[in-house]
Each structure stands twice: as C-alpha cells, then as structure tokens.
Amino acid sequence: MSADYIQPILDPEDPEGPRVQAVLPGRLISYYYKFHPVNYENLRAAKFVLEHPKRLFAGIRAFNEGGWCFTGRPETWHIREDVTAPFPANLVFAVYLNSRCFVYEC
C-alpha cells in the first residue's frame, strides 16, 4: 500500500487561523490508481481544490459525526485517463474529508 500524502489546508474550524494538515490516505491513492485511473488523475484537481477552496461545508453525513466537504473549480480535469477537458461550468469539484481530515472521496 502507498504511503499517505500530507496536504496543508485551511483549518475548516478556523479558516483565519494557521493551516492544518489533511491526509490523502495511501489506501485511497492505491485504490484509485489500481481500479480507477481517471479518479487517480483527478487527484490533481482534488489537490487544487484543497489548496484553493471556494466553499467549505460541514454536516455532510447523516450517520457519521464531523467531516467536511471542500468544493472548488479546477480549470481542467480528466474525463478519461489520457483526456483532459475544461471543468464544466455547471459543476463543482468536491473533496470529502472525515473528522480527522482524512480525504475519503473526491
């Protein structure tokens, strides 16, 4: 399994304060790379959104305490493994983090 990747992000509980660390878990990196190359490529877009979020949301799950959703709009994304396209104007790219700031979906 891959190692975890650490990404500094705005503290969702204190966006004006110092940055905190989000974790891109190695198991998610491996899973995307092994089974979903497009999602693996779009981890670039996820990194961009974590670095340049437009909106942060809380209370995203009915059955799990805490957690965050960072949304933003990358300029481009992958629609196939080797095909990039402008990110659609009517969508936002969402990155979901649990209460420990571990990314679990994007």
Partner: peptide
C-alpha cells in the same frame, strides 16, 4: 507513491476513512 502498483479490474471496496 504508486510505483510498482498494478492495475486491476474494479470491484467493491469498503473505505474505512469514509
């Protein structure tokens, strides 16, 4: 981070972080 990882056919996965 993915050096040496082989591609596989998709299957259901339980993601403990989510």
């Amino acid at each position: 981070f993915v050096e040496g990882t082989e591609r596989e056919s998709p299957k259901p996965w339980y993601n403990p972080d989510g």
